[in-house]
Amino acid sequence: MDAVIRIEQLTRTYATDGQKVTALAGVDAAFARGTFTAVMGPSGSGKSTLLQTAAGLDRPSSGRVWIGDTELSKLNETKLTELRRDRIGFVFQAFNLIGALTVEENILLPGRLSGLLPDPRWVSEVVERVGLTQRLQHRPAQLSGGQQQRVAIARALAVRPEVIFADEPTGALDTTSAGEVLSLLRSAVTDYRQTVVMVTHDPVAASYADRVLVLADGRIVHDTPQPGADRIAEMLASLGRRLVAVEG
């Protein structure tokens, strides 16, 4: 398999005030080029942590991450940033934008920082598809939460990265805008062979993906090819029952 991302025995623990919280407890996974994966699981199961460590935003406590042939733990902060800038786009769960900059400047920021401005035609296409053409000169504070989220997605798509990580990109969107965003991600995969890894709680959103990973307590508990929205909902529900059973 032509894996763009490979993670091996990934663990991440947080130590706060002497208490140890295990966010990831040994995760192995590989993501092939041109695939769309949905990561699901209960709140606090480690989804955001998985995405952040895989994207080199956070360093794992142990285990390794490869992007292509590059192993991330070998890179220093600068090299890591450069790799992220060139090959990875990231849409965060919240607080994505620099308040001082306009929508357009926010979208072009990674290019400006790397000195490689993206193709303007592609940028305007992306902007159009997220429905922000009229909003380019606005400040983030003047946009709704969903609109802000779409700016962040446009920013991630603008540089045409090999891999796009998106942490609940549709969490704040209505069904129509969510559909727009999801088909945008889908076409990035189908048309441009980009790789998308997306965290979501919504079975419908997950049904756009080729594969569904389910996390619980920092471990992968399900890894299946697209099973359809209904089956996903069932899986999550059974997981909820199982957790209740374990706790009870």
Binding site: E77, L97, L109, L113
Partner: peptide, 16 residues
């Protein structure tokens, strides 16, 4: 701190 950390997350190197 927040703003600068976000810049770091988006694509700015520590040097930048």
């Amino acid at each position: 701190r927040r703003d600068l950390a976000l810049l770091r997350a988006i694509a700015a190197t520590p040097r930048q």
